[in-house]
């Protein structure tokens, strides 16, 4: 019980004393997660849209692969990315191992399947609903896709928040490819792992509380979005 109280006290102190190290770690966590989310959306949303609206013979197989990849163990992703970008790996010449770029790549591999699978599901549903109307209106497929994406905006936002939740709370992959280097690749989750291994449980817990608050905020936004969308019958 004492350790919990101590952890709460410490997390308050860290936040309200604007602890430089903490905020550096926090900002790096947010930067890595947001950049990987943005890049994942740039790749995942068009891919999800194509899978939803185009019918080609291996479409279902691709969807099954992405659905399976949603449950990828982060450590396995970290290990694969590590092998690829390590000095002896095929992309070793890029020299990005133990950099935030490597962490972004690893997180993208974890987020893209979520964005692809869920957005494909959402857009397919809306496409089936609008199909006959749009065909009757003789609208171009480009305008139809714009309408699908616009009308699915609330659902897509919730998918993005789910992707962000996965990224910000992930530790296995970023610790392998980032190396948890102080002032360079140390993020919230890797700091928690480090402090725990050092036996500094109250600091680890304090960081955990801050991380939980971020996750809580994301989930709160997610629920608010869902409620608003449902109330307006936009989902």
């Amino acid at each position: 019980m004492n350790i919990l109280l101590e952890a709460f006290q410490q997390s308050f102190d860290l936040v309200f004393n604007f602890d430089k190290d903490l905020f550096e770690i926090l900002f790096l966590s947010l930067r890595v997660s947001l950049v990987s989310l943005l890049l994942s959306c740039l790749i995942g949303l068009p891919l999800g849209t194509i899978l939803a609206i185009k019918n080609f013979w291996f479409r279902d197989s691709i969807l099954i692969i992405f659905n399976t990849m949603m449950g990828l163990p982060p450590v396995v992703v970290g290990l694969i990315v590590y092998i690829i970008i390590s000095r002896s790996g095929p992309l070793g010449w890029m020299g990005i191992l133990y950099t935030p770029t490597a962490m972004i790549i690893a997180q993208m591999i974890l987020i893209i399947p979520i964005i692809v699978s869920l957005s494909a599901q959402i857009i397919e549903e809306i496409q089936l609903e609008y199909k006959n109307l749009f065909k009757s209106l003789v609208i171009s497929s480009q305008d139809a896709v714009k309408a699908y994406l616009f009308d699915a905006r609330y659902s897509i936002l919730t998918v993005m928040l789910a992707g962000f939740g996965r990224a910000i709370s992930e530790v296995g992959a970023v610790i392998i490819v980032g190396g948890n280097i102080d002032h360079l690749t140390r993020v919230m989750t890797t700091s928690i792992a480090l402090e725990t291994s050092k036996g500094n449980l109250s600091l680890a817990l304090a960081l955990g509380i801050i991380l939980l608050l971020i996750a809580l905020t994301v989930n709160f936004l997610l629920i608010r979005l869902k409620i608003t969308a449902k109330r307006r019958s936009y989902v």
């Binding site: 009757s136 309408a147 019958s233 936009y234």
Partner: peptide
């Protein structure tokens, strides 16, 4: 130049 009204109206989520 044709317009169709379906038995079950399809309305946009707007």
């Amino acid at each position: 130049k044709q317009a169709m009204v379906f038995q079950t109206p399809t309305l946009l989520r707007r």
